[in-house]
Nucleic acid binder design. Structure first.
Length: 484
DNA sequence: TTTTGAGTTGTTCGA
DNA sequence: GTCGAACAACTCAAA
């Protein structure tokens, strides 16, 4: 039997800096496989993420094809399918890049055990993190719970490894006859919406795939990173990297991003201060920190990191939750963010904090409701970042926001969307209102509202809750948790 | 073991 | 308009 291999694509949909793919390709002819995971133990991918995945897989198939390779698609339980494919093809090497959610680790361990027992070599690699979660520890060997010392420890290790190039040669391993019934056409994955087709705004906003990712990196490092430290807070401008969905699906990896950032800084392509590049690197650090937390706290998406919050008096309020989800709270910056999310599958980070704070603190609705909504609607819905960030806002998480940090959506709007540009983009019915009053339409005189064609309660909602009341209620609820 | 300094992203109030 | 203080106390991480 001649040497051949199986490479299992998961959250690493790229050819460059893909160590498991390189190892498989160097070994001999390789079968490149993606399985739409339907194992019952894993969290089902949200709708927006499924759309992204579909487009990303199409791009990947094309890239592979251009290099003489081929992407085979299947759906089902990998614990059943992988051994079946290995047996039918007779490959003697299986490779993949690691994942870090508990259910995925369990699945991968199970597959590895079974294959190894049957005499097949299995090799796993790191493609999605700068450091494995278990490599970073405090002086006493425990996981970090605070970002700053975590990041200091990471930085003390020196620069991360340089990214590896894409494999130069990909010889495809032909699919045996017996497996052909399992291989699906792209359409048969049924990942994209049809009736209704709600993905129009996403198609306009994004180019999924490795080429789209590298293009986004170039344009970010070439332009937006100048002034990033401040600009990243402005949803009215294009001042963030917008790389989150590309990172989520591994169309680009943090090593590539790290070294591209350093190269841009050294080449003097970043006119601003070196602080902008460092700030951006620390944002990559927050992604790393989230994975560190997820690995050491596997139930991060469902359990309070800080158990004291188990006694928090959350409210059940379906009407308020629905208003929040649909962008009908009567607070323009909140509604603009929720509509941006619904339309494009993405929301500016500053606005994510505002809408999350509003749901959790003013409406007193459980952060898990918000986490679930984001999981379903974000194209970048990430198993580590999403729960980490929600718990951070709730105050139940690691390095969490202090109890008194309650974002005022009017103040935040005036500060970070001073001209109302962002609000007008997503709430056209308020388009004629002047700034800064656009952030608090109920304070305008009836005459000014009429002049702008706004009828509160008809063309745009009145606020669903009074800010002062909601703030005080949240402070009281937090005080009710008492001392630890 | 004990001590010490520090901890992503805010708001309000009063001088 | 601007500025500093108050808003709880706790826990983490390292010395």
């Amino acid at each position: 039997m001649s040497a051949s291999s199986l490479f299992w694509f998961r959250d690493d949909l790229r050819l460059a800096d893909n160590p498991a793919l390189c190892a498989a390709a160097a070994h001999g002819p390789v079968l490149c496989l993606y399985i739409l995971d339907e194992s019952p133990k894993r969290r089902v991918l949200g709708g927006a993420a499924r759309w992204w995945l579909s487009r990303s897989l199409a791009a990947l198939a094309e890239e592979l094809g251009a290099r003489g390779g081929r992407l085979v698609l299947m759906r089902g339980d990998p614990a059943r399918l992988i051994p079946m494919v290995v047996a039918a093809t007779g490959v003697d090497l299986v490779t993949w890049n690691r994942r870090y959610e508990a259910a995925a680790i369990a699945l991968d361990s199970e597959v590895k055990r079974e294959l190894t027992q049957a005499g097949t070599t299995v090799a796993s690699y790191n493609a999605s993190l700068l450091n494995e979660p278990w490599q970073i520890a405090t002086g006493s060997g425990t996981p970090f719970k605070v970002f700053t010392p975590y990041w200091r420890a990471v930085r003390a290790r020196g620069e991360p490894a340089a990214p590896a190039p894409a494999p130069t040669q990909l010889r495809p391993l032909p699919l045996p006859e017996s497996l052909k019934p399992l291989a699906l056409d792209h359409e048969r994955l049924m990942l994209e919406p049809t009736a209704p087709d709600w993905a129009g705004g996403m198609r306009e906003a994004w180019i999924p795939g490795e080429a789209g990712a590298t293009g986004a990196v170039s344009s970010f490092l070439g332009e937006a990173i100048a002034g990033y430290s401040e600009g990243r807070n402005r949803p009215d401008k294009v001042s963030t990297s917008r790389l989150s969905p590309h990172l989520r699906f591994g169309e680009i990896g943090p090593r590539q991003l790290w070294h591209a950032t350093l190269a841009a800084r050294h080449a003097g392509e970043i006119p601003g201060s070196a602080g902008d590049a460092e700030k951006f690197l620390s944002e990559i650090g927050w992604r790393e920190f989230s994975y560190h937390l997820l690995f050491h706290h596997p139930d991060l998406a469902t359990q309070n990191f800080n158990a004291r919050f188990d006694a928090f008096p959350w409210r059940q309020d379906d009407a308020a939750l629905h208003a929040w989800q649909r962008g009908l709270t009567g607070y323009p910056i909140v509604d603009a963010g929720m509509r941006e999310l619904w339309t494009t599958g993405w929301m500016h980070n500053r606005v994510r904090m505002i809408v999350a704070s509003f749901l959790i603190k003013h409406l007193l609705i459980d952060w898990r409701e918000g986490e679930r909504w984001f999981w379903d609607t974000l194209v970048d819905a990430d198993p580590a970042n999403n729960p980490t960030s929600w718990q951070w806002v709730a105050g139940s998480g690691a390095d969490a926001a202090p109890y008194f940090r309650i974002f005022n959506p009017v103040t935040q709007g005036e500060k970070f969307d001073p001209d109302g540009t962002y609000v007008r983009r997503w709430i056209p019915e308020l388009g004629q209102l002047p700034a800064p009053e656009i952030h608090s339409p109920w304070t305008l005189s009836p005459g000014k509202l009429a002049a702008a064609g706004v009828r509160l309660g008809e063309t745009y909602p009145r606020p669903i809750i009074d800010l002062g009341f909601g703030r005080q209620r949240a402070l009281d609820a937090l005080a009710s948790l008492g001392r630890a």
